[in-house]
């Protein structure tokens, strides 16, 4: 079966580098917010740059929150896209939305995975920006075929999910956190495979090999 990948266009993020990274491994991934196209795709990527509240608002406004929840094909959340898979995020809007008295303390997310996303500690530095290594939970998930603890991935984020039951890889910056998660068809990576050189290429290939 040939890969028909869709990058979910949620909010005004920059999808160019992800699309190009797919193209470099021979996958023509279209950027779309069309529910029909997303449902028909063989593989769906939920990218994310920006803030959780705005991204969730964009998904809800377009009804894509329900579309994503109903998918059965492989889904990969990247960076903020991974954080949105959880029930809630501590990354809350600074200002109250129109009509509300106060800004909510947390942002309600997709809830495809149990647990919440918390702010990383201020020390040693915040945000966590740069190349870091990960530890794979054994047996290693198929997303990490051909990869191991010697590989480096590029991270840029200030919030992260705890290393709970669905973590398939851990990383540490101030505290341990989930570098990658998987449950059924739902997958997430906190790092940016599209910016992680050879290791990132391998991970994206592995994702598109999932059925």
């Amino acid at each position: 079966m040939s890969v028909q990948a869709i990058i979910v266009a949620a909010g005004g993020a920059n999808f160019g580098s992800l699309q190009q990274a797919c193209r470099r491994i021979g996958v023509d991934a279209a950027v779309s917010a069309d529910p029909a196209r997303i449902k028909a795709a063989t593989h769906v990527i939920l990218p994310g740059v920006g803030a959780a509240a705005q991204a969730m608002q964009a998904l809800r406004d377009s009804g894509l929150d329900c579309v994503l929840a109903a998918l059965t094909q492989p889904l990969l959340g990247i960076c903020l896209g991974m954080q949105l898979l959880f029930e809630a995020s501590e990354e809350a809007p600074a200002q109250a939305p129109a009509g509300a008295d106060a800004a909510p303390a947390v942002t309600r997310c997709l809830g495809l995975l149990p647990g919440a996303v918390h702010r990383l500690p201020a020390a040693p530095s915040w945000p966590h920006m740069g190349w870091n290594r990960i530890t794979l939970r054994q047996p290693a998930h198929a997303l990490f075929d051909g990869l191991d603890g010697d590989d480096w991935f590029y991270f840029v984020h200030g919030y992260a999910a705890a290393s709970g039951a669905h973590a398939i890889a851990l990383a540490e910056h101030g505290r341990p956190f989930a570098a990658a998660v998987a449950r059924g068809n739902v997958h997430g990576v906190q790092f940016h495979p599209e910016k992680s050189a050879a290791a990132g290429r391998r991970l994206l290939r592995n994702f598109f090999a999932l059925t």
């Binding site: 160019g16 580098s17 190009q20 990274a21 193209r23 470099r24 590029y154 840029v156 940016h192 599209e194 910016k195 992680s196 050189a197 990132g200 290429r201």
Partner: peptide, 10 residues
């Protein structure tokens, strides 16, 4: 744009 097409590091 040309750089972004080719480069897989930040």
């Amino acid at each position: 744009e040309r750089v972004a097409r080719e480069l897989d590091i930040p």
